[in-house]
Design a protein around this nucleic acid. Structure first.
Length: 570
RNA sequence: GGGCCUGUAGCUCAACGGUUAGAGCAGAGCGCUCAUAACGCUUUGGUUGGGGGUUCAAAUCCCUCCGGGCCUACCA
């Protein structure tokens, strides 16, 4: 039995994520986790909220709450929404957990011991009114290049020139609006990634099967300009993990915290510790320590393309640089962006559909199916309501849902709600078995390779087989001359429902549960042998005709939603 | 500015130097009547963004131009 460690990029805490965020990491990770479980493999699927950093502090202040309280509330909100989308995390942790505090400090201490941490004195913009150092993008002013009056400190949105906050004319804090800013000297720790460059490059070069999106971004960072740069891993903030060298204080670093991008990936590991401490398991090291049982683990990460540098370079630097036998990632699946109706999803402008809103209008399976079958794998993809309506109605309602409906209702009217007896299978049925077998093997190949869209396409083709069979077998005609033969045909079709439930589970878990319940069956074993799987529901086995599995989206609904989500949120 | 990705049928996408570039949706025709006005079969539709080159052979490799997008290290 293979063992799969699976992590999704951890969503930032300040607010509810949109569908683009969902399809880029959590959802495909869930698909893969569910698939591996369905194949009988052992899975540890972890995700958390990423809770530190300036945006969290500001969002909390805006909400008028202490940041710890704000994060606790938002974590609960995100956990509930994740549950609503049926994201099957083994644990949904928090980067602010005590476990992550200790582990992050441990890693920093190890890296310092290995000579991979250096101190750097630098000057940064400090806002007296806000009482804090401000990241570049929280300072705005007039662009010295084009005169645009709300250019950000890192880049001018108007002329795209990259800026330094000190270049801005009349700079002010975007938080308070205050222009009482000054450059202050501050000391920070840098992770010496540059020392790891050759090791990282050899490692990346060995990953020939990774998505090109992943390796091209990694190589760009490795070789751009002067090569891989050392990276600051501390910040002057209140909310975060205090800078310590293991258990010991770090002289000169009092009052500082680790940078979120240092502690966030470490949370992948700490999350497994949280899983143990939550009473869900008793051994996290067999997933994460190659000296303690993790040597046979396959570790797969999922993320949007913006996260790739941190997962291909920074986090591996932390892992490798520690000199300890931590499990390194085996495969990094990265995604492009999902756009919304001709533009970008925008959290700040409230443009597009957010996870909570999506669940208000339709159940999870609708979204899961559309998002996964249109996952932005090879390039950015686009959500439009027309496409959503057409795909969902055709694939889920017509092809799958109606198949279930037509055969269960036919059986009920002729034989009752029971798998009928009589007749035998012949060439037509063998042809179904052969095609099912071919397509199921192809589906498995795509799922194993995490080719999400291809897997969805193959699954749909498998659903179609049922309709093709009914059309050619025509049990409604057979029944008039040879009821026993019709019974054999119905028997096969009813058994297809159970197979469809099992195969579809990773994409549409609620439908899987509904179908198995309707078939009065709790055996969800994978159809390794299609002939055997088609005999799973024996003669005399009862079932209940299910309610409409997927109702259709009407034109009126589509238009209403189109209007509702065009502008801004709330 | 630099780098990377991308452009294939009306739409969403396959095809990774090798038959006549394929699917789904949409359109057209036929069939079926079990079913959620559902299903099945057949079919229309492409100068593979433009141009040039390499090759026995190019959607695929090279050059160039045009369009879309992303990244560029202090948002996370």
């Amino acid at each position: 039995m293979a063992r799969h460690l699976i992590t999704s990029a951890i969503p930032y805490i300040n607010g509810i994520k949109h569908l683009g965020n969902l399809v880029g990491s959590q959802l495909p990770a869930d698909l893969f986790a569910r698939y591996q479980r369905a194949r009988g493999n052992e899975v540890m699927f972890l995700c958390s909220t990423d809770e530190h950093g300036t945006p969290a502090e500001i969002a909390a202040a805006k909400a008028g709450k202490p940041v710890a309280e704000y994060c606790a509330e938002m974590h609960a909100v995100q956990a509930e929404i994740a549950d609503g989308f049926r994201l099957s995390f083994d644990h949904f942790g928090r980067s602010s957990s005590p476990e992550n505090h200790a582990l992050t400090q441990h890693f920093a201490g190890r890296l310092a011991d290995q000579g991979l941490i250096r101190e750097v004195s630098e000057t940064q913009m400090y806002s007296n009114a806000d009482g804090r150092f401000l990241p570049d993008r929280y300072i705005e002013g007039t662009c010295p290049n084009c005169g645009f009056d709300s250019a950000r400190g890192d880049q001018c949105d108007n002329c795209t020139k990259q800026l330094d906050p000190v270049d801005l004319i009349n700079p002010y804090s975007t938080i308070s609006g205050s222009s009482d800013l000054e450059m202050r000297e501050t000391k920070h720790l840098y992770l010496c990634q540059s020392q790891m460059k050759d090791q990282l490059e050899a490692w990346i070069d060995s990953k020939t099967d990774w998505p090109i999106l992943t390796t091209s971004i990694a190589k760009k960072w490795l070789n751009d300009g002067d090569g891989l740069q050392d990276r600051g891993i501390t910040r002057d903030l209140n909310w975060g993990i205090p800078v310590k060298k293991g258990d010991a204080d770090w002289p000169g670093m009092e009052g500082k915290v680790f940078y979120v991008w240092f502690d966030a990936p470490i949370e992948y590991i700490a999350c497994a510790q949280e899983w143990v401490n939550a009473g869900k398991g008793d051994n996290w090291e067999r997933w994460w320590r190659t000296d303690k049982g993790a040597d046979d683990v396959t570790y797969t990460q999922f993320m949007g393309k913006d996260n790739v540098p941190f997962h291909t370079l920074s986090f591996p630097s932390t892992i490798l640089g520690s000199g300890e036998p931590w499990k390194l990632v085996d495969y990094i699946k990265s995604f492009n962006y999902l756009n919304y109706d001709g533009g970008q999803f925008s959290t700040s402008r409230g443009r597009g559909v957010f996870m909570d809103q999506a669940l208000e209008i339709l159940p999870a399976d609708y979204w899961r199916w559309w998002l996964l079958s249109h996952a932005p794998e090879s390039s950015d993809a686009e959500f439009t309501w027309e496409n959503f309506q057409a795909s969902v109605n055709k694939d889920l309602a017509d092809v799958l849902g109606n198949f279930v409906s037509r055969i269960t209702k036919f059986c009920r009217s002729k034989f009752g709600e029971v798998v009928p007896e009589g007749g035998t299978w012949g060439n037509a049925e063998q042809a179904v078995i052969d095609e099912m077998t071919t397509r199921i093997r192809a589906y498995e190949t795509h799922m194993q390779a995490i080719e999400v869209r291809k897997a969805a396409s193959e699954l749909r083709a498998i659903w179609v087989i049922g309709n093709e069979y009914l059309q050619s077998a025509a049990p409604w005609s057979t029944f008039k001359e040879n009821p026993e033969q019709a019974a054999a045909q119905v028997r096969l079709a009813l058994n297809l429902i159970r197979i469809y439930a099992v195969l579809s589970g990773p994409f549409i878990p609620d439908a899987k549960a509904t179908l198995l319940a309707a078939m009065h069956c709790d055996d969800d074993s994978w159809p390794d042998d299609v002939t055997a799987a088609l005999n799973m529901l024996p003669v005399g086995h009862t079932f209940s005709v299910p309610d409409v599995l997927f109702r259709k989206i009407t034109d009126d609904e589509r238009e209403e939603w189109q209007t509702r989500f065009a502008g801004t949120r709330d």
